[in-house]
Design a protein around this nucleic acid. Sequence first.
DNA 1: AGCTTGACTGTGG
DNA 2: ACCACAGCCAAGC
Length: 105
Amino acid sequence: MTEFTERVIAIIKSVPAGKVVTYGQVAAMAGSPRGARQVVRVLHALSMKHGLPWHRVINAKGEIGFPDSESREIQMMSLESEGIEVRNGKIDLAVYQLQAENLAE
DNA sequence: AGCTTGACTGTGG
DNA sequence: ACCACAGCCAAGC
């Protein structure tokens, strides 16, 4: 378990309902501005084990970046239930993206 | 130790 | 807005 991974877990857990973060954003806060892919790995590998709110983590385009139709529907539904407006699978980052200053460092 | 892969990102056409 | 290309980093073989 790398320090990066632990940081990612802590950050994801600190994301409040009604807000989302991008992979790159989490990576940057975890100490690796270019480590978005590692965030991805941590997410799908440890989300269940740690009970992380993976549905609040999306890509820089404001979309659910994955092809699995079933899971993405679940994610979209979870987001909407938290008050996040999802239109055509896309989220308004300008409104719903969590600001770094509000997260643990 | 080397190569491949991926729920990514930014830049450019 | 969409597609192609190139960087990046850790895990899996």
